[in-house]
Write a protein that binds this DNA or RNA. Structure first.
Length: 201
DNA sequence: AGACGGATTGCCT
DNA sequence: GGCAATCCGTCTA
């Protein structure tokens, strides 16, 4: 069962500690159509101020990336390839520009709603991939800059986190810079994790 | 003011 | 496995 732990205070910790810890937490976005979400099974860390060339904040603060420079618990959304909306949870103290990309969820809340938004009834295809997460949850760009728990987006930490042995680690997916950092975490063997099979076991 | 390209996805062969 | 779709932030002039 989930604990009603909105905006866990450990989001203020370093992104490399928070990203793996988010595995097993439940994320829910509520719109006029109802709640939709699931259990986080795949995350990636981006650390702009740590010299991470793959981070949107690497070249400094802009209007788009401003939410990344807020403190942990802020929501950062961006449009990808002109089509998708991808969700990040900002971590660390303000000014650090750290964020965790939510790459995949095991769908648990609002299955019918997510199936309608995604035009598929296949559970494994609802939230497998960052673009799909944004579409399934009905995220809107104007939610970027809002705070977890204060808007329509809620985060629930589990009473007992998944055992460390069940969490895998790899390089990040789809980037061209700083690709050797092992800053991706995922629930081993889950059918809801994105990427090639070698990055899901 | 105009060009460029991406933390992706889905459909094609 | 290849590639088009599609938007807007960012960069250059």
């Amino acid at each position: 069962m989930q604990q009603a732990n909105l905006y866990p205070d450990w989001l203020g910790e370093d992104v490399l500690a928070v990203a793996p810890r988010l595995i097993g937490c439940t994320l829910v976005n509520t719109t006029s159509l109802g709640p939709a979400g699931g259990v986080i099974v795949e995350t990636e860390a981006y650390a702009g101020s740590n010299g991470d060339a793959a981070s949107h904040a690497y070249r400094g603060q802009t209007a788009r990336t401003a939410p990344m420079f807020e403190s942990g618990g802020t929501v950062y959304l961006y449009r990808s390839y002109g089509i998708h909306i991808c969700l990040n949870l900002v971590t660390g103290p303000a000014g650090q520009a750290q964020a965790v990309l939510i790459r995949a969820l095991a769908p648990t809340v609002g299955l019918d709603l997510m199936a309608a938004r995604r035009h598929t009834g296949v559970a494994a295809d609802l939230c497998r991939g960052p673009g799909r997460v944004g579409q399934a949850l009905g995220l809107a760009l104007r939610q970027s800059g809002t705070r977890l728990g204060e808007g329509s987006l809620q985060l629930y930490a589990p009473e007992t986190p998944p055992p460390e042995a069940t969490i895998g680690r790899s390089r990040r997916i789809g980037i061209t810079q700083a690709k050797d950092n092992l800053w991706r975490w995922y629930l081993k063997g889950s059918p809801y994790v994105s990427g090639p099979p070698s990055l899901r076991q």
